[in-house]
Simulated assay, not measured.
Amino acid sequence: MIYLKRIRIHLTRTFQEQQKPPQNENFEEPYQLLMQPPAGCTMMLRRDPPHLPTNLCLNEQEAIISRLYDRLSQCMFDFVATNQIPLPLDPRERLIQRPSDCDWIEWVHLLKQLAIKGRIPAHVLHHDEINQLFAVLESPLQLGRIAQSKVPRDDRTILQMVFAGIQVARLLQDSMGVDYLDMLYTGIENVCREKRALSESRS
């Protein structure tokens, strides 16, 4: 029985800590300031960024993210089960019996805890990349936080999320997961291409 309740409490505290504004720090050591660019260049740098193609509506994006996280949870479950990685027990919590017993964020936190405790041997990861584990797991999470704003994101952001998921499946040596997410990535590209062509034909 896994520490799901404790994981959720930890995640809540971590999120709250991330929302705190950073404290101002005064430099005590010598420092330098770089020369500012010309005024015209500064104005160009600060202008509104160009519009990036956004062909997927919010519902479509949320459906894609849901499929992505469901598949990544499956990857995590299969990885832990296949390699017989021991999970901590808590008599107050339920056993993990299926991928959906933990959401993707809980799986990430759990795997990071196991890695910190040395319960994940490097050889079970692709090319023994144990040092890359945290960064690879965090990437889809960071992009997912961007996508939670209930504002449609550009197509490239959604594709970046799926690509980050492919890297997770690759690191966990889950060929089926890589194939699934690669097909999802290709499908998104095709849908965006078709919508863009349709929009151009109407204009």
Rank of each mutant, 00 (worst) to 15 (best):
M1G: 15
M1H: 10
M1V: 12
I2S: 05
L4C: 03
I9C: 07
H10M: 13
L11H: 02
R13K: 14
T14E: 15
T14F: 11
Q16N: 12
E17D: 13
Q18R: 09
K20P: 03
P21F: 00
P21D: 09
P21Y: 04
P22V: 08
P22K: 03
Q23F: 03
N24F: 02
N26H: 08
E28A: 03
L33D: 11
L33R: 11
Q36S: 15
Q36I: 08
P37E: 07
P37W: 06
P37Q: 08
G40T: 09
C41P: 00
M44K: 05
M44E: 10
L45K: 12
D48F: 10
D48Q: 15
P49G: 08
P49F: 02
H51K: 15
P53Q: 10
L56E: 02
C57E: 14
N59S: 11
E60N: 06
Q61C: 03
Q61E: 13
A63K: 12
I64R: 02
I64V: 15
R67D: 15
L68T: 02
L68A: 00
L72M: 00
S73N: 05
Q74D: 09
Q74S: 05
C75S: 15
F77K: 05
D78R: 12
V80H: 00
V80R: 09
A81L: 08
T82C: 04
N83Q: 01
N83V: 01
Q84M: 06
I85F: 08
I85S: 00
L87Q: 04
L87N: 04
L87H: 04
P88S: 02
P88T: 01
R92H: 11
L95S: 08
I96K: 02
Q97D: 06
Q97L: 15
S100G: 06
D101Y: 00
D101H: 03
W104C: 03
W104I: 01
I105C: 01
V108M: 08
H109R: 13
K112A: 11
A115I: 06
I116Q: 13
K117V: 11
K117T: 14
A122W: 09
H123T: 13
H127D: 14
D128T: 04
D128F: 13
E129M: 10
I130G: 00
F134C: 06
F134A: 14
A135F: 10
V136F: 00
L137N: 02
E138W: 01
E138L: 02
L141S: 06
Q142V: 13
L143V: 14
L143F: 07
G144E: 04
R145G: 11
I146C: 11
S149Y: 07
V151Q: 07
V151G: 02
R153V: 15
R153T: 09
D154H: 06
D154C: 10
D155T: 05
T157C: 14
L159H: 00
L159F: 01
L159E: 04
L159D: 02
Q160F: 10
F163K: 04
I166C: 04
I166D: 01
Q167E: 14
R170F: 03
L171H: 03
L171C: 03
L172Q: 06
L172N: 11
D174H: 00
S175A: 13
G177M: 00
D179S: 07
D179Q: 12
L181A: 03
L181F: 05
Y185P: 02
T186M: 12
E189S: 13
C192P: 07
R193H: 12
K195M: 06
R196S: 09
A197T: 07
A197Q: 14
L198I: 08
S199H: 04
E200P: 00
S203Q: 07
